[in-house]
């Protein structure tokens, strides 16, 4: 691999632009293919090959192309996890999710909770969730988890999540808490979408500690991601 190509690949990854590195395995020639253009090419592709490469890139898959020695390695921005409520469970969840390659953002307007010391490996947003969620714009590669246990913090975040394509939405709280939450959200016009909220949150693993609950939540997020 040419050093300049590696640098350009890293620039794209840092800028969170999806890019495929295509390698002709017999001779080592390489190209970078983006969703809308092609650069740094030591290779030429016909339109059908280009379509095959972009199809892999769009679905974040890597592999050999049929009847060729072309290998495609897709690099796509990390999935995101937005955690609302900088609570004890959030600390464990942020750490575990980072290990699974999620980009983690913790939202909590209570500055005593959302501190660097408590969340050294996550981006912190000490804003109100409605503002933060508008700025962060969850997409189909984003999971949203509310843990604040306070309706005035959790509810606006859930409404924003239900308005988005987020692939996972989960809310901490008992069945009874969730029933009351659903009543409030239904009054706001979200009645038909409430089934998207995973509550009580997490797979039923039986654990009780904050870290065990974080594992149960992350396990459910992983399940949602791969079992669409």
């Amino acid at each position: 691999m040419k050093r300049a190509l590696l640098e350009e690949l890293q620039c794209a990854r840092i800028a969170k632009i999806p890019v495929a590195l295509v390698t002709e395995l017999d001779v080592g020639a390489q190209a970078l293919v983006y969703t809308d253009h092609l650069v740094a090419s030591e290779l030429t592709f016909d339109l059908s090959r280009l379509a095959e490469i972009r199809s892999l890139l769009r679905t974040a898959r890597s592999g050999l192309l049929n009847d060729s020695s072309l290998f495609v390695r897709s690099y796509v921005p990390a999935y995101r996890l937005l955690i609302i409520g900088a609570v004890h469970i959030a600390q464990a969840l942020a750490t575990l999710a980072r290990e699974c390659d999620y980009r983690v953002t913790v939202i909590d307007p209570r500055r005593a909770f959302a501190t660097e010391q408590r969340f050294h490996n996550a981006e912190l947003c000490p804003e109100w969730p409605d503002e933060a969620m508008a700025r962060l714009a969850p997409d189909a590669q984003t999971a949203v988890v509310t843990l604040a246990h306070d309706p005035k913090i959790d509810d606006p975040a859930l409404m924003a999540a239900l308005d988005s394509q987020a692939f996972y939405i989960g809310a901490l709280g008992s069945r009874r808490t969730h029933e009351k939450r659903c009543e409030r959200l239904a009054q706001q016009g979200f009645g038909e979408f409430l089934g998207r909220i995973n509550a009580p949150i997490g797979l039923n693993l039986g654990g009780r500690s904050h870290a065990e609950i974080a594992v149960a939540i992350l396990a459910q997020i992983i399940q949602a991601r791969y079992n669409e």
Binding site: M1, L25, S62, G63, L64, F71, R73, S74
Partner: peptide, 16 residues
């Protein structure tokens, strides 16, 4: 740089 380009059967690390 070493990259897994294909796998058969059970192998612990995915392609890429």
């Amino acid at each position: 740089l070493a990259t897994v380009v294909s796998t058969w059967g059970s192998s612990p690390r995915p392609v890429g």
